[in-house]
């Protein structure tokens, strides 16, 4: 897929109503490069953009506490529906949903396997890491200024 531009419509809901916009980038672009700003009204968004080749894009979104998240997807010549859950929910990256496009479905399936086999355990161990740090028994060296 290349040269001819295709149109992708992204629709969806964002459960965290403090999110007012999604920033949409090609995955490889840095924040200072061209960016689509997708407005979110009452937790809903509907936006169409053009793309010309198969590559990953990413949403970046921030809540009122400036906590942010990145969510990748693959545009298709058609419509994709998203359900994005509050960032505060532990493992929200596992329950966010994408519907539309074979590669996005493949990604969801892969993410579920990796999430349940590895990422959930890693998250739990990092929670334990935090507890040890809070108790002052994780590291022997403290660094601050």
């Amino acid at each position: 897929m290349n040269a001819q531009p295709f149109q992708c419509t992204i629709k969806g809901t964002v459960s965290d109503t403090s999110i007012e916009e999604l920033k949409l980038f090609k995955f490889l672009e840095v924040a200072n490069d061209s960016v689509f700003v997708v407005p979110v009204k009452n937790g809903k968004f509907n936006y169409t953009f053009q793309f010309d080749k198969d590559e990953a894009y990413r949403f970046e979104y921030f809540n009122h506490k400036s906590e942010g998240w990145i969510f990748p997807f693959f545009p298709i010549d058609g419509e994709i529906n998203f359900t994005l859950f509050p960032l505060e929910i532990n493992g929200s990256y596992l329950i966010n949903k994408i519907e539309g496009g074979q590669i996005n479905q493949e990604y969801m399936g892969f993410r579920e396997i990796v999430g349940t086999q590895y990422n959930i355990q890693i998250d739990q161990l990092y929670n334990r890491w935090d507890s040890l740090e809070e108790a002052g028994i994780f590291t022997m060296i403290l660094l601050w200024y």
């Binding site: 590895y118 355990q121 890693i122 161990l125 990092y126 334990r128 890491w129 994780f138 590291t139």
Partner: peptide
């Protein structure tokens, strides 16, 4: 890290390797 911290970090490393 402390011995407990190191054991925890090694477990995380091994999960990342498996992933």
């Amino acid at each position: 890290k402390t011995p407990e911290g190191k054991a925890l970090a090694l477990k995380i490393d091994s999960l990342f390797d498996a992933s």
